[in-house]
Simulated assay, not measured.
Amino acid sequence: MAEVVVELASLVAQAGAKVAFGEKVDVDGATLVPVALAIYGVGGGQGPAGSDDAGPLGSGGGGGSLSVPLGAYVGREGTVRFVPNVVALLFVSIPLTIVAGRALARIARALR
């Protein structure tokens, strides 16, 4: 089981910027490079080997990923600008704002 987890982790590490930045695309004289926030996680577990218990030994594993399209870099006539995906930015910023607000409230309560 451990070998599978190590292999998956190495595949994710090799992906690097290829995951966050897509292949460039030419559209109507402009060059677009899509940008995404990519998060991956893998894990595994195994029960105690050689246990004297009569119960079953367990093992397991799992993984998951999340990719949020943040926007695209648009190059046209020698200039490059970032065009955000407003819906995705709200998707990312709303939970961050909630967590930051709760953290600040706890800090303020602790300082009283």
Rank of each mutant, 00 (worst) to 15 (best):
A2H: 11
P34K: 03
P95A: 01
L32I: 14
G41E: 13
Y40D: 11
L111I: 11
D26C: 06
R109P: 01
R81M: 06
R106F: 02
G78T: 06
E77C: 04
Q14R: 13
S93A: 15
R76W: 01
A20I: 14
Y40A: 05
A72I: 10
S10F: 01
A2M: 08
V33D: 00
L66M: 11
M1C: 06
P84L: 06
L111Y: 06
Q14H: 12
T31M: 09
A103Y: 06
L111H: 04
A108F: 01
L111C: 02
E7N: 14
L111T: 03
L11P: 01
V5H: 03
R81A: 11
I39G: 06
A17D: 10
E7K: 15
R81Q: 07
V4T: 15
S65K: 09
E77V: 09
Y73A: 07
L96S: 03
E7S: 15
L32Q: 04
G47W: 05
V27W: 09
L66T: 15
F82P: 04
A20C: 12
G58F: 10
A13P: 02
Y73I: 14
V99N: 05
A110N: 05
G50Q: 07
L90E: 04
T97W: 11
L89T: 07
V83I: 13
G16S: 13
K18W: 03
L70M: 15
T97F: 12
L104A: 14
L66K: 12
Q14P: 10
Q14F: 11
S65C: 15
I39V: 15
L11I: 15
F21E: 01
Q14W: 02
A2L: 10
F91S: 08
D52S: 11
G45N: 09
A38Y: 05
V80Q: 05
V83S: 03
A9T: 11
I94D: 02
S93L: 10
G62E: 00
P48T: 15
V99W: 08
G50P: 02
D52C: 07
V80H: 01
P34I: 10
R81V: 09
